[in-house]
Design a protein around this nucleic acid. Structure first.
Length: 108
DNA sequence: GGCCTGACCTCAA
DNA sequence: GTTGAGGCCAGGC
């Protein structure tokens, strides 16, 4: 079922450490759907729709450019976690990008 | 039931 | 750097 994909996405998002951010495509690739980044985005949307998931840090998920797709509270939460935005309004993925999941022994 | 929209990504020109 | 097309699935009307 596609619902399993959701749970998988949520599980990955939960693995995102504080002060780090992950891109949709990155998560999509983690769950085994490198071309289904759209579903990742919708899965996040489903969180604030009718499925409250306080245990899922959806605000740590940004697009490939390191920008916040929805902004607002997401940016506010990221700033509160220590994630800084540059002059272009983008996050330095080199610094805050979550590329430690391989070394975390999760999917590696 | 069908059509359109949506927190997107990647490849190619 | 921008623009267009392909791919995936769920919700709203």
């Amino acid at each position: 079922m596609a619902n399993d994909l959701y749970e998988r996405i949520y599980a990955v998002v939960q693995r995102i450490p504080e002060g780090k951010v992950a891109t949709y495509g990155q998560i999509a690739e983690m769950v085994g759907a490198p071309r289904a980044a759209r579903q990742v985005g919708y899965a996040m949307a489903a969180l604030g729709r009718g499925r409250p998931r306080p245990d899922v840090p959806w605000h740590r998920v940004v697009n490939a450019r390191g920008e916040s797709s929805i902004g607002g509270e997401q940016i506010r939460r990221l700033l509160d976690e220590g994630v800084a935005f540059d002059a272009n309004g983008r996050i330095n993925l080199k610094r805050h990008g979550w590329h430690d999941y391989e070394e975390s022994g999760l999917f590696g």
